[in-house]
């Protein structure tokens, strides 16, 4: 049987990850079964596809498991404070708009302690790519519930089940003004790579909410059999590609997260606005 053309393209080709890694900084700190490594892989392949020079890329993070990413990758890298990655990134990008700035952040980092910065970064539509590693867990501190933890879930600070409704990072990003909003999962690796690539190439604030699983804390506390079991339930069965969603009856979509590009519009970008409006008017005055 011949392989359809589309499938052929998806077949993994040999890829030199070391071109973008700092091999002497490995092994990474992530637990066996954690999805962060898969997301990192998708991110590096997406960056490779952009063809950007490594010297022009800046990867910035806050605090948490996912925020350790910058240390492992061979770009201009900045590991900042809890919640503040987007503010530092705004400064770097605004000071030197030639840099391609990618922010790696967790759901706690981006949506709880950094929630205000998240909203206002989206509002400005400054050209940053924001990758939110959403695992519904504060992993670095030992498994507390986060702003995306589903209601009823167990965590070390919700022993009786979480009573807080979770945030939807995509809805929040869209409502706040981001011009590109997408979702991916660690399970759908090739799709994720494509989405991240599209996000980086987009001019303006691009947010990708990436659902991945924390088997060590969330998985054990909520009686998942294994890391792969978690991926199947949380990432595969609980999500639907936005392109297929139209064809499905509403009851099949209930409680499920949509994957793919959910929102993409053309909108003035902050640094360009500053240059074309503020600087021009200031010079003329």
């Amino acid at each position: 049987m011949s392989v359809p053309a589309e499938k052929k393209e998806k077949v993994s080709v040999p890829f030199d990850y070391n071109k973008y890694l700092r091999p002497n900084k490995l092994p990474h700190i992530w637990c066996p079964g954690c999805g962060h490594g898969i997301v990192l892989k998708a991110m590096l392949r997406a960056i490779d596809k952009t063809g950007f020079d490594k010297n022009d890329i800046c990867v910035i993070s806050g605090i948490g498991c996912s925020s350790r990413t910058p240390g492992y990758v061979d770009f201009n890298t900045l590991h900042t404070l809890h919640g503040r990655a987007l503010s530092f990134a705004t400064g770097v990008k605004f000071a030197n708009p030639k840099l391609k700035v990618i922010v790696v952040t967790g759901d706690g980092d981006a949506l709880a302690i950094g929630g205000n910065h998240f909203i206002h970064t989206c509002r400005r539509n400054i050209d940053l790519t924001v990758l939110v590693f959403t695992n519904a867990t504060y992993g670095m501190t030992g498994g507390q519930y986060s702003p995306t933890t589903p209601m009823g879930s167990q965590a070390t600070t919700s022993r009786y089940g979480s009573i807080e409704p979770p945030f939807d990072a995509c809805e929040m990003a869209k409502a706040s003004g981001a011009s590109f909003v997408a979702r991916g999962t660690a399970y759908h690796t090739l799709e994720l790579e494509k989405t991240i690539h599209e996000a980086i190439m987009h001019k303006g604030t691009s947010v990708v909410d990436i659902i991945d699983a924390c088997p060590t804390y969330y998985g054990r506390a909520n009686k998942f059999k294994s890391a792969t079991h978690m991926m199947e339930v949380i990432e595969k069965e609980n999500t639907v590609n936005v392109k297929q969603a139209d064809k499905l009856p509403p009851e099949k979509l209930e409680g499920k997260f949509l994957r793919g590009v959910l929102h993409k519009i053309e909108k003035p970008e902050y640094c360009e606005q500053y240059e074309s409006i503020v600087m021009e008017k200031a010079k003329a005055k």
Binding site: T80, R84, S87, T90, G91, V92, K93, F94, A95, N116
Partner: peptide, 12 residues
């Protein structure tokens, strides 16, 4: 965010 962005500007 004010000081954090200023630090980003300085690093750039």
């Amino acid at each position: 965010a004010g000081i954090a962005a200023a630090l980003g500007g300085s690093l750039a």
